[in-house]
Nucleic acid binder design. Structure first.
Lengths: 131, 131
DNA sequence: GCGTGATTACTCGGATACAAGATGTCCGAGTTTGAGCGG
DNA sequence: CCGCTCAAACTCGGACATCTTGTATCCGAGTAATCACGC
């Protein structure tokens, strides 16, 4: 029950993009270098973020990645859902007659975490970091 | 980022033991049958719970598993920690100069979930279920 | 009746097999920028 | 000076390779209760 490394890469990269906040896209090479990842692997991760509509890619020379939305709209949850998927962390496959009460409690617990992640924005971190 | 099936087995088995609440231990075969798992696999899971001090095993004929503590002391978190381990769900390996702010937020979020799981007791489910 | 041993019903733990997912690499294809070259 | 072409600098996406982890099985060993047997 752990978050994948890809999520960590995604969060750090998004933070970098938010901090940069320029109109000009930033190349994968530059992003990858600061996190010590291969460019090909990072680009695979960023493609997921792009599909989720968080960032967009500009191909060709001088290409790279750039935020799409307003940067203070991006939450931790957005990133995590883009990478890890949106399915629940706990699934009870058994066939009890009724709804599984254990699963119900687990989902409530999960919601507590998701709620916090939904309230926390990447841009807040960027502000803290720059000070 | 999902809970393992083993955790589900562990939770259901513990619930069964709490509901039974007899002094006499319950055999793995009986427990496994109700969840459609092999006895050998389930016993492996229960060994973890035993090591965590939540249940104890009685070997030999008429043997099986039985709760050790008072049943209203057992929380969801106890079970989950016993099976999944106690390490954090999010680890940032990078070497930033300072503490990683992203990791800090992620751990706060995780704490929200753990807090809920710590407050929720198995015996509560047992009561709900019997009504 | 009573001890003693064998049998039976269990759990325990290590070794192993298998599948799925996470992690990462390679390479060909498409796309934009910019430089070079000819008119 | 303008437009065309071509190379360079990029990203995109699929196909692999690898490693770890979860899931599960098998089997020999140990252990406790029970039964059988002989004294």
């Amino acid at each position: 029950m752990k978050f994948s490394k890809a999520t960590n890469y995604a969060l750090h990269t998004t933070l970098a993009l938010v901090s940069a906040s320029s109109v000009k896209p930033i190349g994968v090479q530059q992003l990858a270098k600061s996190q010590d990842v291969s460019t090909t692997y990072l680009s695979k991760i960023l493609t997921k973020l792009a599909k989720a509509g968080i960032i967009e890619s500009a191909s060709g020379a001088q290409g790279g990645y750039r935020l799409t939305r307003n940067k203070d709209e991006i939450t931790f949850l957005d990133i995590i859902h883009a990478i890890e998927g949106t399915s629940s962390m706990f699934e009870c496959d058994f066939v009890h007659g009724e709804e599984c009460l254990i699963q119900a409690e687990m989902k409530k617990a999960e919601q507590k975490m998701l709620q916090y992640l939904k309230e926390t924005k990447i841009v807040d971190i960027a502000h803290k970091q720059s000070t």
